[in-house]
Computed example of a mutant assay.
Amino acid sequence: MPETPGLGEQALNKAAEVGLTSQLDEVENLDIDIKTDPLKLVQGQVDSVKIDGEGMVMQKDLRVESMQMQVNNVAINPLSVAFGKIELTKPTVGTARVVLTEVDINRAFNSEFVISKIQSQKIHINGQLKTVKPQQIDFRLPGEEKVAINADILLVENNETQKVAFTAVPRVSANGTSVVLENVTYGNEQEISPELTQALVEQTSEILNLSNFDLEGMSLRVKRLQVETGKLTLQAEAYVEKIPSDNN
């Protein structure tokens, strides 16, 4: 007969689920599994916390295909449980895995937030300062551990559309907080402006910056990046100071 989760576990699962959901713009599926037993709970001990989310839409219109996080041996304030809260008495470190698809990164690139950031910059093109307005940015994950970007950029002053196309290799930054693009290579398109390319490179890093995926009281540090056709997988260390609950 399958073991039914104790009342304490059920209450904690529900509190964490409500707390996490409140931080997301959207979520398709969220499953939280907190393992403990009443005796340990009274002593403030939780064996493990597992979070499994799908279709999570974070800030800045960034959708995550899936996120799994696990922390073990969590110390909590036993009194907080009575109030439906999960109050950690000390920070804990766990593991996380985040999957982003090409479609989701494209959506972020073409969001108002990103477009307005790029067009707020004046960029040197052929020696002249121009106001740039992205018309369409096409971000692809073609395989071979590369990303490819094709963009149509309107130069506002002379109403002329320029194409920018390049591939690059994503790498985890030294401090593990973001993904940087290296080995930028141009296709057949002529490079119209190193500054414009740099702006797009920086914007890619910003979209893939791990602080975008932080939830309140939880931050991630990337250990490994896997680039496949159509998707990016980030293996990370999760630093947890707080587990959001329904009345945090």
Rank of each mutant, 00 (worst) to 15 (best):
P2T: 14
G6W: 02
L7W: 08
E9Y: 01
A11Y: 06
A15T: 01
A16F: 00
T21M: 09
T21W: 04
L24A: 12
V27L: 03
D31M: 08
I32C: 01
D37W: 01
P38R: 02
Q43A: 06
S48D: 02
S48Q: 04
V49K: 00
V49S: 00
D52H: 08
G53T: 13
M56K: 03
M56E: 06
M58T: 10
M58C: 06
M58H: 04
K60R: 13
K60L: 12
D61M: 05
D61A: 11
D61I: 07
V64S: 08
S66M: 11
Q68E: 13
M69N: 03
Q70M: 12
V71S: 00
V71E: 00
I76R: 00
I76N: 00
L79Y: 10
V81A: 03
V81S: 00
G84W: 06
G84D: 11
E87H: 02
E87V: 01
K90T: 12
P91L: 09
T95Q: 07
V98G: 02
V98I: 15
V103I: 15
D104F: 05
I105M: 08
N106G: 14
R107M: 10
E112H: 09
E112W: 05
E112Y: 09
S116I: 09
S120I: 09
Q121P: 05
N126E: 15
N126F: 15
I137C: 04
D138S: 14
R140W: 07
P142S: 08
G143A: 08
G143E: 08
E144H: 11
E144K: 13
E144W: 04
E144P: 02
I149H: 03
A151I: 11
I153S: 01
L154P: 03
L154D: 10
L155Y: 10
V156M: 12
V156P: 07
T161Y: 08
V164M: 07
T167H: 07
V169R: 13
A174T: 14
A174Y: 13
N175Q: 13
S178G: 10
E182S: 15
V184L: 09
E189W: 11
Q190H: 12
Q190V: 15
E191T: 08
E191L: 12
L200T: 03
S205P: 02
I207E: 03
I207P: 01
L208R: 06
N209Y: 08
L210K: 01
L215P: 02
L215W: 01
L215T: 06
E216F: 10
G217H: 05
V222E: 14
R224K: 15
Q226R: 06
Q226N: 13
V227F: 13
G230C: 10
T233E: 15
T233C: 07
A238Q: 04
P244M: 04
S245N: 11
D246P: 01
